[in-house]
Simulated scan of single mutants.
Amino acid sequence: MAYKHLVRRALFSLGGGDPEIAHERTMAALSRLGQVRPAVRGLRALFGAKVSTTVFGVRFPGVVGLAAGMDKDGRALRAWPAMGFGHVEVGTVTRHAQPGNPGPRLFRLRESEAIINRMGFNNAGADALAARLAALGPVGVPLGISIGKSKVTPVEEAVEDYRHSLRALYPYGDYFAVNVSSPNTPGLRGLQDRAALDALVGELRREADGLAGGGRAKPLLVKIAPDLTDHAIGEVLQVCADHRVSGVIATNTTLGRDGLSPADAPTGAEAGGLSGRPLAERSRQVVALVAREAGGELPVIGVGGVFDVDAATRMLDAGASLVQLYTGFVFEGPALVRRINRAVESR
């Protein structure tokens, strides 16, 4: 409750209520916090998870992870594990550094407990992230890296764009998420179409196998949109099976606006992808569909609308092996991570 009444209120008022200013200042504060070892140890004692699990060959010290988008450039990687996260997914990162879309581009919908963003993969680029990770060393929990297409890269040249990022970052990630589902980069969602996805994933599979040097390649996952039809999801799963993809992340943000409070209708009209509580049921449905269609052979990371223990439990019961937080963390704070971890420990 202290987070909601004190910390969140202060955060939501930063920069005159501008969510992006609040985000940037929070990231800067967490980056500094991660450098204070006694503070990190104290947080670990308070929030640390105690139940581990192995998914696609990677050992996770807890089922709750940080979703991509929160820490695109890996600025606060020492802080996240201290708050109980069992894995951290950075990015989405692109081959070329890019500023993203013009602002304003991030909007809170308080009554609906949701966020709309049209950030556009703003990041410093894959090579810059690789340099930061090389200097940082091990994070302490599995590190996922989400890779996407640069805005300046034509869709027909997307494969090389993704391949460059995979090569640059391969030494540092424990798994790689192929993001073809953000609604904020023109043409990107078209890469979910079967032929385009087959070409992209096939090349990344070959690249990963080559980088492994005869050993076990690091896991490749595909992140899908909640707006796909069941038939389209089935086609994605067939591509995943054909190219030995290790898992699916379900789901990205939605272009839909179902479930919003009437009070949020004006902000809800903003363009961009919606995340948060209104997405919970659709994300759970997609997780259940993937688990059912894949016959339990394809691990799923469930993300979307996880705001409480019940939502996390429903996601896990639907077939998710892990869950991720973004908007739920913004609205509920680190205590949410602890509550979910404790609930899983007691199951």
Score class of each variant (00 low, 15 high):
residue 76 A to S: 11
residue 79 A to Q: 03
residue 79 A to M: 05
residue 80 W to Y: 02
residue 81 P to T: 09
residue 83 M to S: 08
residue 86 G to D: 02
residue 87 H to N: 11
residue 87 H to A: 08
residue 89 E to H: 05
residue 90 V to G: 06
residue 93 V to E: 12
residue 95 R to L: 13
residue 96 H to D: 15
residue 97 A to I: 12
residue 98 Q to F: 08
residue 99 P to N: 06
residue 101 N to H: 11
residue 103 G to A: 15
residue 104 P to V: 05
residue 105 R to I: 09
residue 106 L to H: 06
residue 106 L to F: 12
residue 106 L to A: 03
residue 110 R to S: 15
residue 110 R to K: 15
residue 114 A to V: 06
residue 114 A to I: 00
residue 114 A to P: 06
residue 116 I to D: 04
residue 117 N to G: 04
residue 118 R to Q: 13
residue 119 M to R: 00
residue 121 F to T: 02
residue 122 N to W: 13
residue 123 N to S: 00
residue 123 N to G: 01
residue 124 A to K: 11
residue 124 A to N: 07
residue 127 D to V: 10
residue 127 D to S: 14
residue 128 A to D: 07
residue 128 A to W: 10
residue 130 A to C: 13
residue 132 R to T: 03
residue 134 A to D: 07
residue 135 A to G: 01
residue 135 A to M: 10
residue 135 A to T: 02
residue 137 G to N: 08
residue 138 P to A: 04
residue 140 G to M: 11
residue 141 V to I: 06
residue 141 V to F: 12
residue 142 P to A: 01
residue 143 L to C: 12
residue 145 I to E: 08
residue 146 S to W: 06
residue 147 I to F: 07
residue 147 I to K: 00
residue 148 G to P: 10
residue 148 G to H: 11
residue 151 K to L: 14
residue 152 V to K: 15
residue 155 V to Q: 02
residue 156 E to R: 01
residue 157 E to G: 09
residue 157 E to W: 10
residue 158 A to R: 04
residue 159 V to H: 03
residue 159 V to Y: 09
residue 159 V to P: 05
residue 161 D to E: 09
residue 162 Y to R: 05
residue 162 Y to S: 00
residue 163 R to E: 06
residue 165 S to V: 00
residue 165 S to R: 00
residue 168 A to F: 07
residue 168 A to R: 00
residue 169 L to W: 05
residue 169 L to I: 02
residue 169 L to M: 09
residue 173 G to I: 11
residue 175 Y to K: 05
residue 176 F to V: 03
residue 177 A to R: 11
residue 183 P to Q: 12
residue 184 N to T: 05
residue 185 T to K: 07
residue 185 T to A: 12
residue 185 T to M: 14
residue 186 P to G: 05
residue 187 G to Q: 13
residue 188 L to C: 07
residue 189 R to P: 01
residue 189 R to E: 10
residue 190 G to P: 00
residue 190 G to D: 06
residue 193 D to R: 02
residue 193 D to C: 07
residue 195 A to D: 06
residue 196 A to F: 03
residue 197 L to P: 06
residue 197 L to D: 00
residue 198 D to V: 04
residue 198 D to N: 00
residue 198 D to G: 03
residue 199 A to L: 14
residue 201 V to N: 00
residue 202 G to I: 01
residue 202 G to S: 09
residue 204 L to S: 02
residue 204 L to W: 00
